[in-house]
Write a protein that binds this DNA or RNA. Structure first.
Length: 879
DNA sequence: TGCGTCACG
DNA sequence: ACGTACGTGACGCAG
């Protein structure tokens, strides 16, 4: 087999990647999306082609010969956006680090270099592949030269491939004739003037008929249509110029050695460093551990596996003010412990023989009496080492979250990079691969010690920088008084869990199943065939193609079959109602009945995880299972709440804030009308309607009230006339009028929201009443969509976030009061504005007083925080 | 794995 | 002109 060479059009692929992918930046705000996209496509092609040689060609910035000709003629060049421009040197740097040959030459475009190398290589007897985003390159296709054009449509990349034959099939002309086409049609992007009045159709006809522009002129009288003939006649010199401009030079005088272009090891240490800095996490896994640089920190790792040594170690640790801790543990087992006493003194203790997990945990409980334990995830730590005093611990993960809540994970290597002067530590995956801790342990992976020590090191070393940053940014109080105590509150909620009746859940699931099968049958019958109703794609085909229903909104992949679309179609055909019911039941069965049943523990209770470092606004989230989205709005779904029950001798007490976000808005904006409204009104939406629509309170119609309610919601979400119009099924204009009237009624709300956006733009972040920050990089975006999103976020986050702060404060206080007063009752759930307490029957009175006092008293606002409370024998009754 | 959908606040 | 309400998590499908 002959050798293969891959030639890449650097700028054009970078361009493709830039425009095809969302604007990606690393945590320093450096734009990296185009480089990332480039590398992804490079690896994909390398994988497919496995070439022996590889070369990437770039234009230089100075104008080339061909451009000069036309610039002189027309004098225009297109500008490159700054976000892309700064990535050009970056991709060159990465390619160089990977040992990839780059060519460019003053006075020559990348096209010319590619053309020259393609012709030269073909002559050498090689197979040539050219990767470009530019169709001009098609003129280079031959039997041996393959042109590959990546296309990004709907987010994914497909590649079109062209040898001579494919060019002819697609364009009806041979590759060299592509030049003629292009010269006739012109190309504004490429600054080729072309012949006025000649487009793709005419050009193709002409070349198919005459073969070349010259021949067309030779038979000018035969050229049709007349318009084109006249234009050709008039613009002869334009045709000549265009052809020159469109022709890629295949004989450029470049020095080129195949030896240098030979593909070598791409995954070099230099490339690793770069990918790490750019935060290309997916790419890092491609690197072999062998290329990872030796880290000086590692020389300070010590293994400690004898009892007396460990005793001495804990003794030494107890003299420190604080230490870094990493506990290697999962739900079942403890595998080892890392302790950092100093930056240069880190120990690893594997669980082994007399050094049991229990022993280590007991030692740490002791250690906590004298020394602050710093770790990445204190809540996980508490699962094995129960502590009660928040002053005994420091959580660097939560600190890092507060400082930037937009990250999706808070891993030690990220934190080290961020807070320890950019130090690059090997990530978990570098050390342990994708294996679970258990697996790594069983195969006694030697990465365990490094993993544990790096984590302990990071916890130790970043404590001070994180603490300082929190103080500098005004978030120390949020950390110290809200988030840190909340760790203990959430830990307790997770440990208690909530009792769920598994048997009844099964019965409920079976009932659903019966009806689901009925509906299935009915739907198949009406549709005339069996299909997967759960597949939006198949469903769309049946409804909108086979049955001919009017298809509305489109999604990326086809027709939308979302509920709001189907509801509007319900009158068109009875099948739609059945589908909606089917959907509802299928959801209830799969997400609630079945999966809830599968996570009931041996104690008969569900122990959800409450995440403290997920949301951008400061809310907590709940996973495995999510107990914050148990149905309540529809009766059938709401019934599920009957299986959530308190244990014997207890009842549920459920307390929720009434319209907390609107009250927060009233307070933060200081709008007297809204504040006054809250001081007077039972029904805020009715009152809003009466004020906005200028009708007496008693005469507000239900429609007016509904509209006012939607506007109130809209305000909290960062109002837009479009969003409101969608929600209310009214025109944008009407929605805009509602909003205008609303702002007339509550003028300070308008200036408050405007102020938030202005503040966000100026500072790059917005804050809650308590100082919690949310960065909003989107506000700086040049993209209208992104920027608008940023503006809505700027309006919403302080409100949602303040409400989140308030309920967190309330949770902590309720938790502590229950503890202090020695009660048996316990907080078991939080659902954003709602707390559920499993209450000992004889403690009902005191607990309801605690709830009321602490929830209402959690924040001092200019309007009352109102709390609704209900008790019941299950969650359904208590809500 | 990403998307569409839908459950909650 | 752009094309959407804010914040989440889980499921099933399709590639």
């Amino acid at each position: 087999m002959s050798d293969k060479i891959l030639l890449i059009d650097g700028h054009s692929i970078l361009n493709r990647a830039f425009y095809g992918l969302p604007d990606l930046t690393n945590s320093e705000g450096r734009h990296t999306g185009a480089v990332y996209g480039f590398l992804n496509i490079l690896f994909r092609i390398l994988d497919e082609e496995k070439p022996k040689y590889l070369t990437v060609a770039f234009d230089l910035h100075e104008p080339t010969f061909r451009h000069k000709m036309y610039d002189a003629y027309k004098g225009t060049r297109k500008a490159m956006p700054e976000e892309l421009r700064e990535q050009v040197p970056l991709i060159k740097e990465v390619l160089t680090a990977m040992g990839i040959k780059i060519v460019s030459k003053p006075g020559f475009e990348a096209d010319d270099l590619l053309g020259t190398l393609a012709v030269r290589s073909e002559k050498e007897g090689m197979d040539v592949t050219i990767l470009s985003g530019d169709r001009d390159l098609l003129q280079l296709a031959t039997e041996k030269v393959l042109i590959r054009l990546p296309k990004t449509s709907r987010g994914k990349t497909t590649i079109e491939n062209f040898h001579t034959q494919e060019v002819i099939e697609k364009y009806q002309v041979t590759p060299p004739q592509i030049i003629e086409l292009k010269a006739l049609m012109g190309d504004s992007a490429d600054n080729i003037p072309g012949i006025p009045g000649v487009g793709e159709k005419t050009a193709t006809k002409m070349i198919v008929e005459f073969g070349s522009i010259e021949n067309a002129y030779a038979h000018l009288e035969e050229v049709k249509p007349n318009k084109a003939k006249e234009s050709l006649r008039e613009h002869y010199d334009m045709a000549v110029l265009s052809k020159t401009l469109a022709t890629i030079n295949t004989d450029s005088p470049i020095d080129y050695s195949y030896e240098e272009a030979e593909l070598k090891e791409l995954y070099t240490p230099e490339a690793y460093q770069l990918c790490k800095q750019l935060e290309f996490k997916n790419l890092l896994s491609k690197f072999d551990t062998a290329v990872m640089p030796e880290n000086p920190i590692e020389q300070n790792f010590f293994s400690c596996s004898d009892l007396s040594g460990v005793d001495a170690l804990f003794k030494k640790a107890s003299d420190k003010a604080y230490v870094g801790i990493s506990l290697l543990a999962d739900k079942e087992n403890i595998y080892g412990l890392g302790i950092a006493l100093e930056k240069e003194e880190i120990y690893y203790i594997p669980v082994e023989g007399l050094l049991t997990g229990d022993f280590l945990c007991a030692s740490m409980k002791d250690l906590a009496k004298t020394t602050v334990l710093c770790a990445l995830d204190i809540k996980q730590f508490l699962k094995h080492v129960p502590l009660e005093d928040e002053t005994q611990v420091f959580d660097i993960g939560i600190g890092a979250y507060l400082l930037n809540p937009l990250k999706s994970t808070y891993t030690y290597d990220d934190i080290a990079k961020e807070y320890l002067d950019g130090v690059l530590l090997p990530a978990r995956e570098d050390l342990l691969g994708k294996d679970s801790l258990k697996k790594a342990w069983e195969s006694s992976a030697d990465g365990l010690m490094a993993y544990s020590c790096y984590m302990a090191y990071t916890a130790f070393a970043s404590r001070i920088p994180i603490e300082n940053s929190l103080k500098d940014s005004g978030m120390w109080k949020v950390y110290r008084e809200i988030e840190l105590p909340l760790i203990f509150t959430l830990d307790s909620m997770e440990k208690y869990g909530i009792c769920v009746k598994g048997e009844e859940l099964k019965i409920y699931g079976k009932k659903l199943q019966v009806r689901i099968e009925e509906l299935e049958k009915q739907i198949y019958e009406v549709a005339g065939e069996e299909f997967n109703i759960n597949s939006p794609k198949q469903l769309g085909t049946i409804l909108f193609e086979k049955m001919g229903l009017p298809g509305g909104r489109k999604t990326k992949t086809g027709y939308s079959t979302a509920a709001d679309i189907l509801e509007k179609l319900a009158a068109e055909h009875p099948i739609v109602k059945d589908i909606l019911e089917y959907r509802q039941l299928a959801k209830l069965k799969s997400t609630y009945a079945d999966s809830l049943a599968s996570v009931i523990g041996p104690d008969g209770r569900i122990h959800s995880t409450f995440n403290q470092t997920i949301t951008a606004t400061g809310r907590i989230s709940s996973t495995e299972p999510n107990l914050q989205n148990i149905p309540v709005r529809m009766e059938l779904g709401r019934l599920i709440r009957k299986v959530f029950v308190p244990e014997e001798g207890y009842v549920f007490l459920d307390a929720d804030y009434s319209q907390i976000e609107l009250r927060v808005l009233a307070h933060m904006s200081g709008d007297e009308t809204l504040i006054q409204a809250y001081r007077e009104a039972q029904d805020i939406h009715r009152l809003t309607a009466s004020q906005v629509f200028h009708v007496p309170f008693e005469e507000v119609t239900s429609l007016q009230r509904r509209n006012a309610k939607a506007v109130n919601f809209g305000i909290v979400y960062g109002i837009s006339s479009f969003g409101l119009s969608q929600d209310l099924s009214i025109t944008r204009k009407e929605a805009a009028e509602y909003i205008e009237k609303y702002f007339e009624t509550y003028p300070k709300i308008k200036s408050f929201l405007d102020g938030l956006v202005a503040e966000g733009k100026e500072k790059g972040y917005v804050t809650t009443m308590f100082g919690r920050r949310r960065p909003i990089p989107e506000l700086k975006s040049g993209n209208f969509m992104q920027r608008s999103f940023g503006e809505r976020v700027a309006m919403n986050s302080p409100i949602q976030g303040t409400a989140a702060d308030i309920i967190k404060i309330a949770m902590n206080r309720v938790y502590k009061r229950i503890q202090q007063e020695g009660l048996k009752s316990r907080l078991v759930l939080q659902v954003h504005d709602e707390l559920l307490i499993e209450t000992k029957k004889d403690e009902l009175e005191i607990v309801s007083r605690i709830l009321e006092e602490e929830m209402k008293g959690a924040a001092k606002l200019s309007v009352e925080l109102e709390v609704d409370m209900h008790e019941g024998g299950n969650w359904y009754e208590a809500k």
